[in-house]
Every structure is written in C-alpha cells, then in structure tokens.
C-alpha cells in the first residue's frame, strides 16, 4: 500500500454507508488473529481442563467419566495437603519481596556517580532465568562444599544442608525465589520514586517531617500504583512457582517441597503413567485459588478504567 491511495480517497465522504460499515467491522478484523490464537491456546483450554478433571485419562486411551472422584481423592491425598501448605508458605513469605524491594530502592535512590550501573547490577537477578537461579542456589546450599554449608560449619560447628532437610527445604527454595523477586519490586519502586512530587517532599520537610514518618505519610501514598503492581506480580509469582522446585529438589526430599503447580505436573506426566484427569483436578484447585486474587486485581483495574 502506498501513500498515493490516500489522496485518492480524500473527501470521498467519511460518512457514506460503506465507510460506516467499515468502521463497525474494522475492530473485529484487527482483533481476529490475536483473539483466535488467545482463545484457542488460553481461554478454551481453561474450560477443557475443568472438563477433563471429571475423567480418568492416561492421555492415550479413551477418557472414562468418573464424576467428582478425582476431587474426592484429593481430599484424602497427603501430598496434596503438603503442596497446599507449601503454596501458602510461598505466598506469605514471597510478600517480603515488597518491603525488601522498597528498602533497596530507597538505598539506591541517590544521584552519586555511577549509580545507574549499580541500579542495573542490583536488578541483575531478575533478568536471568529461574533455571540458572535454581542452579546457582543449589550450588550455594550444596552440602560438603556449598558456601552456606561452609559458613554454617564455621559459625555453628555443623554444616546445614538446607535442601536435604524436609523442614527447611521449602524455605531454602523461597529464598532463591525472593532474590529475583526483590529485584523486580526494587525496579518498580525506583520508577515510582522518580515520579514522587518533589514539592510535596520539600513542603513536608519544612513541616519537620523526616525518616519513617515522611516515608509512611508522604512517600508511600504516592507510591501506591507501584505497590499495587508489586503485589500483583508477587502473588502471581508465588503461585506460579514451578521452575525452582523442579530444578532444585524435584519436589523432594520425600515430596516435602512440592507445590500445587509441581504436584500437578508430576501427576499428569508421572513416570508411573499419566494421570491427566487427576492432574487437571489439581490444576483446577490452583486456578480457583488464583482466581480469588485475579478477580480482585481485575476489579480494581476495571474501576480505574471506568474512572478515566
């Protein structure tokens, strides 16, 4: 298409019926390719998963209807409760990324020489893959030679093998997950701090506000949009945790570090035969938990959108 076609159609009547129809149809033509892809790969599969959760299915032979049996089995499944409990621990502890991120952002919000490089380097852990983060921390925790193991040996006399102990393993993985998540929250707050109105800060300063008080009453209210995004990405990140569990422990030892996302994968594509129906049921539970949060986020965004 060339520009020459533009003058040709000029003043040909922007309000002719043909144009009107074109304007009605246009959004759907623009939407079609993206929407079809998104429906086929994302929206419809959500419904399909719910449907599959009522079947027993190994992925190959025909499905057989079992009603809510998969869900009843879940109620008696020890591993399911372990995963659920770990998801709650993840969710609660992951929230620490927000204050820590804010703390580092405040620390770095200066204008000394080279500060930009520092900001980028602090952000580093978020850019690298969780697989690499998982491997780095596996090495960090490794018994016998890992840095943490050696340090605890020096200070406590006995080395602590974090990932080999069912009581500490989940916390060890969460610390690894917090590393990139803190970096993410930090960058959100750095951007937010950039936009904080300087005149309000100065005015508050003249009124004698400083330190924590200033942060709480003057700065944090202005950082609200950044905090909202930080909460959204942290909740989603906590419930999506899969990579680190898979890389660092495979859910072990004795299944003690499983989370729902990992347990679902394990059941659906288990080496002892695929249990797609049961896996789908676990996924539906995870989805339901996530929906509580997603609806909250959407509700807030919807209100903001209406307010515009």
């Amino acid at each position: 298409m060339t520009d020459s076609s533009v003058p040709a159609s000029r003043n040909s009547g922007a309000f002719t019926p043909r144009r009107k129809l074109g304007r009605k149809l246009a959004p759907w033509l623009f939407l079609a390719p993206g929407m079809i892809m998104f429906l086929v790969y994302v929206i419809i599969p959500i419904g399909q998963s719910m449907w599959i959760s009522f079947f027993q299915w190994d992925g190959l032979s025909p499905k057989s209807w079992v009603g809510i049996e998969n869900y009843i089995e879940l109620l008696d499944d020890e591993a399911f409760y372990t995963s659920l409990k770990n998801n709650v621990i993840w969710l609660v502890l992951y929230m620490l990324a927000i204050p820590f991120g804010l703390f580092i952002a405040l620390f770095l919000n200066q204008t000394v020489r080279g500060i930009r490089i520092y900001k980028s380097l602090f952000f580093f852990p978020f850019v690298i893959s969780q697989v690499v983060v998982g491997l780095i921390f596996s090495w960090f925790y490794a018994p016998g030679f890992g840095l943490l193991f050696e340090l605890t040996k020096i200070f406590g006399g006995e080395g602590i093998a974090v990932l080999a102990n069912p009581h500490t393993v989940t916390y060890g993985i969460i610390v690894a997950g917090l590393w990139p998540q803190i970096a993410y929250c930090m960058i959100l707050y750095l951007t937010g701090l950039n936009a904080v109105a300087p005149d309000q800060i100065e005015a508050a300063r003249l009124d004698g506000a400083k330190g924590i008080k200033m942060l709480w009453y003057v700065v944090l209210p202005q950082l609200r949009p950044a905090t909202f995004i930080a909460v959204v990405v942290t909740v989603i990140g906590a419930l999506r945790s899969f990579d680190l569990v898979s890389i660092m422990t495979d859910g072990g030892p004795f299944g003690s570090s499983r989370v729902l996302s990992y347990y679902m994968y394990e059941q659906a594509l288990s080496e002892y035969g695929y249990r797609m129906g049961y896996g789908a049921a676990i996924a539906v539970v995870l989805f339901a938990i996530m929906m509580i949060f997603i609806s909250g986020f959407i509700w807030k965004m919807w209100r903001d959108e209406r307010g515009l």
Partner: peptide, 25 residues
C-alpha cells in the same frame, strides 16, 4: 472492555490449567 479484560485475566492464569489441553492440542 470485556475483551480487554479477557486478555488481561488470561495472562495471569496458572500454566497448569492450560497444560493438559495445550499438550493434547
């Protein structure tokens, strides 16, 4: 707005709810 929020919400779902059907597809 409904279509817009369909894209937004779909973007947040856990991967596992998509896994079996997407693999099958």
């Amino acid at each position: 707005l409904i279509i817009f929020f369909m894209f937004v919400a779909g973007n947040f779902v856990p991967f596992q709810i998509l896994m079996v059907p997407v693999r099958d597809l």
